[in-house]
Amino acid sequence: MLVAGVAYFGVIGRSRYQVTSDFIVRLPQAPNNVTPSLLGTVLAGPTMLGSLEDGRFLAVYLTSPEVMQRVFLRLEPETTYAKKGLDPFAGMPKDAPFDQKLAFFRRQVSVVPQDLTGVIQLTTTGLNPATAFELNRLLLNEAENFLNTSNQNISRNQQTFAEQELENARERLAKAQQALAAFNDSQGEINPEASAEATSRYIAGMEAKLVDLQVEEGRLRRQFLDPNAPEVAFVTDQIIELKQQIDEERAKLVGPDEKNLNQRLVKLRNLQTEVGFAEASVKAAQLAADNSRLESQRQLKFLVLLSNPETPSGQSLDWRWKGLLSLVGLLLVGWGVASFVLGISRRQ
């Protein structure tokens, strides 16, 4: 078995070629509390954590069936990854079903976010240098397109929500203003509040005059022994008439009918408060819409390529050494287990 493994990994196995590129996902403006690094703010703390999270998303997206259909199938894997020679493992079987193509594609792509730096390492494998390079380049384009599409969707959704809130606030303001105007029109007066204040002042004036008349009536009663004297009766009639007039004016302020000035004044102030609140809501919604545009710009993410993919000049030998060492380790484990079992059986 060891001889067969050496023969496969040393001679029979087809050459594999690997292309690696490194990139990071960053914001156009790092937070204010981020300490600059050697690369500006690219590898700083919060930005690094964001790139690490985006790298995990990209690891799933770049190996998804949609990307496989757009990228991998463009490389004509039936030809570029076809089985050839004596190697029974390398390559994709002819007329392979979709699931098998997807599994094979995922074995050729490795997306590894680096925990310490946030750098995302993209490694692609091909059976010839050109295929490995082209696959890496196409996947980088897919990663950049994915970020651009995500930016557009996030910005559009935020802006749509903010504009909808602004439109709702404007509609509320328009309804409040219409209700206030309709109320004023129904009252037939420009300013009910001023009317109520004028009525209150008028009543206060009549009450002051009533006090003066009552004082005068008392003086006349003391002066004339006959309570029905013309002078006393004249003042008494004035007092009765003034009291009646005061009661009528008070009824206009607090009476139960539709002419109640106090009730109209309360309704007026409620409508004015609603208009004021609606105006404040419009201002807040406008400010939120403006801030949403700025925040969308701050949240835009873009790909920073740290190392470009290059066409490999030679085959990758890592898989050969790893495969051979794994085989040797497996044989050693098997030999150890077999020796243990034989030792137990001999003791028995």
Results as ranks from 00 to 15, higher is better:
residue 216 E to L: 10
residue 196 A to M: 15
residue 196 A to W: 02
residue 220 L to C: 04
residue 191 N to W: 09
residue 221 R to S: 12
residue 211 V to Q: 06
residue 209 K to V: 01
residue 205 G to K: 06
residue 196 A to I: 08
residue 216 E to H: 12
residue 208 A to Y: 08
residue 222 R to W: 12
residue 215 V to M: 15
residue 212 D to M: 06
residue 195 S to W: 01
residue 222 R to F: 13
residue 178 Q to M: 13
residue 199 T to M: 15
residue 219 R to Q: 15
residue 206 M to E: 09
residue 181 A to V: 08
residue 193 E to F: 09
residue 201 R to S: 08
residue 223 Q to R: 14
residue 214 Q to G: 02
residue 206 M to I: 00
residue 192 P to A: 03
residue 188 G to F: 05
residue 179 A to E: 09
residue 180 L to S: 02
residue 198 A to C: 09
residue 180 L to Q: 04
residue 219 R to T: 12
residue 213 L to R: 06
residue 209 K to S: 07
residue 198 A to R: 07
residue 211 V to L: 13
residue 219 R to G: 08
residue 179 A to G: 02
residue 191 N to R: 12
residue 178 Q to N: 14
residue 179 A to Y: 09
residue 200 S to R: 14
residue 179 A to D: 08
residue 194 A to Y: 03
residue 189 E to W: 00
residue 190 I to P: 00
residue 185 D to C: 08
residue 187 Q to D: 07
residue 181 A to I: 04
residue 218 G to I: 06
residue 217 E to P: 00
residue 209 K to H: 09
residue 179 A to T: 07
residue 188 G to L: 04
residue 220 L to N: 02
residue 212 D to Q: 10
residue 189 E to T: 14
residue 198 A to W: 02
residue 178 Q to L: 14
residue 222 R to Y: 14
residue 216 E to R: 14
residue 181 A to S: 09
residue 218 G to F: 10
residue 198 A to T: 04
residue 196 A to H: 06
residue 203 I to F: 07
residue 198 A to E: 11
residue 188 G to E: 04
residue 194 A to L: 10
residue 223 Q to S: 13
residue 213 L to M: 11
residue 190 I to K: 07
residue 216 E to Q: 15
residue 185 D to L: 13
residue 184 N to F: 03
residue 207 E to K: 06
residue 223 Q to K: 14
residue 202 Y to N: 08
residue 201 R to K: 11
residue 188 G to V: 00
residue 197 E to F: 06
residue 193 E to P: 01
residue 203 I to E: 05
residue 198 A to P: 02
residue 187 Q to F: 02
residue 197 E to Q: 13
residue 193 E to C: 03
residue 183 F to W: 03
residue 180 L to K: 02
